[in-house]
Design a protein around this nucleic acid. Structure first.
Lengths: 267, 267
DNA sequence: TATAAAGGTGAATCCGCAC
DNA sequence: AGTGCGGATTCACCTTTAT
């Protein structure tokens, strides 16, 4: 079934990747049930954009609609969140886990909906940015973290992958905690466009994905990213000998990701 | 109106405190509207601990099994949360702010409801515990944080207190970030009962409250804690010359708090 | 008295399999 | 679903006891 969808793919090795162009809410139902061992999701939290794209009854929003209550963007964002999280839960294997990253703008809504859908939280990991953007006006605390929710599919789920010893080794022989000190993705790792500007506004550091993938999947496992963006998940998955599927709606990001994987693959 | 409620109180100074015995959902409606400059709330987390946990040396972990932390369902917890947060919003001054602390068990639900009620999040501060309890079985990451949501009353609110320079001074001259490294409340600071056991299962460190109160209130301001517990908020508020109101449902905790304030007051 | 060793403990959603 | 058993599993800090 996957092959019927428009996608770029490699073939043959234990680190194959597929990239699908489109909305994950449309594409995920075409993937086989329970076929994915690990999901990493970095969903958008641009409420304004989402309000333009979705509403609870699935129709497109065009202009002012006075049937909205006082929190239209929250409601539409919640509906969007419920849909992609539900679609992810269908393709997640019964012994799989999911990671979702977000900031205080969206992570509370996302976490609440994950709980409502039956996901069972294992940890809330804090990505502690060692070089955060300062709050120039001094009106708040410098926002130095993003939150990753790590969850299994259900409360009753017995089996899931956690490579405790691998994490311990990455932490000087001591048990890894839920606080990960990792710098922002900058410098050579940050992908630039033809004008030298950053090609993607929220490119995640590979070090972050390395911890996610190493801790909660094994070699040969299939990893899914429903909001692939610049392709970090597929790139790190391949480096660590995991298979991967990426889904990305914006053709320009798909191009960036494909080029990144092609380039890095020849290195 | 406050005086008509059963409460213990001091009189006269800029650091007066009042402690009310009862459920904050019942008591808050009796307090004047918009009368409080700062709220710190440490509500039940609804931990849902379902079994006993032993350390590797076979000793039993003294978990939080208090009945006040038990809720029959997410829905009932959400309804409870909506009620106390609404009641708090009524008594909060139009230029005031609120802090709510929680863990991954509850903070996503709390944050979502805060947003729905119109609160506008300023920061999600991470209390990074320097000495957390390890994950003894090695099946998850050591849970090393609790989350504090700091919010103003509404998106449109222009004024609120943030003592940027005070925070900067507490951080070696550098802008304070949203990650606070503070140890657990242990040792002499931890209040013990007559048997030498911890008097409250979730007593917060004074260092945490100091940052909260110093950053977002001024001397003479009125601080409210709707879940006073062992009285840390009132104790720190008095030390920092803030007036305070504490509400606590459990008579045994009220006694502890009153005794703590009486004792410390004579020092 | 000083130093070392031993013991206690913290908001925790903490095992997996065979029978 | 309940029981029993083999096996893997812990960090920082404070207090108490021992040398």
């Amino acid at each position: 079934m996957t092959q019927q969808l428009p996608c770029s793919q490699t073939g043959g090795s234990a680190a194959d990747y597929h990239i699908h162009t489109g909305n994950c809410i449309d594409i995920l139902p075409e993937l086989p049930e329970k076929s994915v061992e690990l999901i990493f999701a970095d969903p958008p939290y641009n409420l304004q954009l989402k309000q333009e794209l979705y509403r609870p009854n699935q129709t497109l929003v065009d202009g002012v609609d006075d049937t909205w209550d006082q929190f239209p963007s929250f409601e539409s964002y919640d509906e969007f969140t419920r849909q992609w999280l539900s679609a992810c839960r269908r393709v997640l294997a019964d012994d799989g886990t999911i990671w979702v990253i977000g900031s205080y703008h969206n992570i509370f809504r996302v976490g609440k909906i994950m709980m409502d859908l039956g996901y069972w939280i294992l940890n809330d990991v804090q990505w502690h940015k060692t070089n955060p953007m300062p709050n120039f006006r001094g009106v708040r605390f410098t926002n130095a973290t993003e939150t990753l929710i790590w969850a299994k599919k259900s409360e009753k789920q017995k089996k899931y992958t956690f490579n405790h010893q691998v994490m311990k080794q990455l932490n000087e022989g001591k048990q890894m905690t839920s606080v990960w000190q990792i710098p922002l993705c900058t410098g050579a790792e940050r992908i630039k466009d033809e004008h030298g500007k950053k090609a993607h506004s929220t490119q995640k550091p590979e070090a972050l994905l390395e911890r996610v993938i190493l801790s909660s999947s094994n070699e040969g496992d299939l990893v899914l990213d429903p909001f692939l963006g610049s392709g970090t998940t597929c790139a790190v998955a391949r480096k660590l000998n995991r298979r991967s599927i990426g889904i990305e709606q914006e053709p320009r990001y798909v191009k960036i990701a494909e080029n990144r994987l092609k380039t890095e693959g020849t290195q």
